[in-house]
Amino acid sequence: MPTFVYMTRCDGCGYCVDICPSDIMHIDTTWRRAYNIEPDMCWECYSCVKACPMHAIDVRGYADFCPLGHAVRVHRDEEEGIIAWRIKFRSGRIKDLVAPITTKPWGKYIPDLKQVPAPTKEQRESQLLFNEPKYIRLDDGDLYTLESQGLKMRQGVYY
């Protein structure tokens, strides 16, 4: 679903212009507000949606398979370091998703792949991904699951 801007909410800060990897968020020359100049070229990465401090950017499905009435909204809370999404289905059903922000400073934590030993034959034939993401234990030990860790999904906040 490509993005669009509610011009009445936008204050022309330019964060979306800065962040758009497709360089399609631009500033309108009449009102100095942002707009998506080429929705067809949108990566649908939602970087702009998350970056907009005014919540002025929304996403819209193509009318044929995603009729009006739904909403995908996000609040990126810089102070709390939290990103929260609300998906509203056309039926009115709401799904909330929330997670800590994992964005790293630019240029930090670039994986030093030279130092990583090559995968063994066994690893190559395995169905698991090589090396990444190692912290969810795909390479050594077993995969952590709720079940294996004796955990239960709690009502209210989902990851």
Binding site: H55, A71, R73, V74, H75, D77, E80, G81, I82, A84, W85, R86, K88, D96, V98, A99, P100, Y135, I136, R137, Y144, T145, L146, Q149, L151, K152, M153, R154, V157, Y158, Y159
Partner: peptide
């Protein structure tokens, strides 16, 4: 405007699912 509610960081980090990434 269909935006999600506000959450506290501690509330989110305290989720049981966060234990799955505890080694990072």
């Amino acid at each position: 405007e269909n935006l999600p509610p506000f959450y506290k960081r501690a509330e989110v980090l305290d989720q049981s699912t966060m234990d799955l990434v505890r080694d990072i």
